[in-house]
């Protein structure tokens, strides 16, 4: 085990090179709906119990199923209304179980990225070969069902190994060259994109995907009220918009169709979306588009700045 992940260098949030998003936007804003499939009777994993109750664990299972049966449509209509294309963190087995949902997202040209096979199959305990196979399966499923070359990754249930990011990037290259496997949502260390060190040396970035703004963290962990969640979204945006004048920032709202679309919560979410998209200097986009834009225009500049500071201040 390592003392630190080693994916990135220390890069202070001041005196950074200025990032400007397309059309002079200050904030790149993206919404990442997690569209997940949780199994009723998943196999055991020695490191994490899938459900708190013996099978069938109805509270957790039924809530997730509700999201696919009821919630997905509600969120999709809301994103349509505000001109937002979702960037889907996908349990890729859902392509087999619920192709109707995949079709609806395809029609809207939403982005699909890999969130593993099921959200009840954890990376913990996998050998490197097993994890590679799982990741490959997920990227191939996305390609087969959507025609998209999967650019991004969020490990299933945020379960990682030391190899996760390396494997994702390598499988992407193996399948589709540089067109796939080039960004991750798994790291929460920054409000701007960060170049990531991989063993392959592939150009690869971390795109901020906020756990703090994640509806499941807000509702299940923080147990916030819907109105407070809506308010937090607006305040998160306000600060990032203000700072984005200095150098472009990223705001992500990661959602789950079983949380944010509940009848008693959706209004607060809608108010935040209306507020955010009502600002002029906002680039409403997807995870992949942010990663591509950053890599094309800022990756080298940022890398140089990070390297120069590391040299000057001796960051280890």
């Amino acid at each position: 085990m390592k003392e630190e992940p080693g994916y990135y260098d220390y890069w202070p949030y001041h005196n950074r090179p200025k990032i400007t998003w397309p059309n002079g936007a200050k904030v790149a804003f993206w919404v990442a709906p997690n569209i997940e499939f949780y199994e009723l009777d998943p196999p055991d994993n020695p490191f994490r119990k899938p459900w708190p109750q013996p099978t069938p664990a109805l509270p957790g299972y039924t809530s997730r199923d509700w999201g696919n049966r009821v919630g997905h449509t509600r969120q999709m209509e809301l994103l349509d209304k505000y001109g937002i294309r979702g960037s889907i963190s996908l349990s890729t087995a859902l392509c087999d179980h619920h192709p109707e949902i995949i079709e609806l997202c395809k029609e809207r040209n939403w982005e699909f990225f890999s969130h593993g096979i099921y959200n009840t199959r954890y990376t913990y305990g996998m050998t490197e070969e097993q994890e590679r196979e799982m990741i490959k399966d997920s990227m191939e499923s996305i390609y087969k069902h959507t025609g998209q070359k999967c650019a991004g990754y969020l490990a299933p249930a945020l379960s990682h190994s030391e190899f996760t990011l390396d494997l994702f990037a390598e499988v992407g290259t193996e399948l589709f060259g540089d067109e796939a496997g080039f960004y991750t949502c798994d790291l929460f260390h920054d409000d701007q994109p960060t170049p990531i060190h991989l063993r392959s040396g592939k150009r690869f970035v971390s795109i901020p995907y906020s756990l703090e703004m994640n509806d499941t963290i807000a509702y299940l962990v923080q147990k916030t009220t819907p109105r407070n969640y809506g308010q937090a979204l607006k305040e998160n945006f306000d600060r990032l918009y203000q700072e984005g004048a200095e150098s472009g920032t990223i705001m992500c709202i990661p959602t789950h169709n079983y949380q944010v679309t509940n009848a008693h919560r959706i209004k607060a979410y809608e108010e935040a979306l209306e507020y955010i998209t009502g600002h002029s200097d906002v680039w409403v986009t997807t995870g992949k588009e942010i990663a591509e834009y950053f890599m094309e225009h800022y990756y080298d500049v940022v890398n140089e700045d990070i390297g120069q500071k590391a040299k000057q201040y001796g960051n280890a």
């Binding site: 196999p43 994993n45 020695p46 490191f47 087995a93 179980h97 096979i117 305990g125 996998m126 097993q130």
Partner: peptide, 15 residues
Amino acid sequence: GTLDDSYLNYPHRSY
């Protein structure tokens, strides 16, 4: 603490 390969089998992965 490692997983049997059956962990990558998905018997219900269908419509």
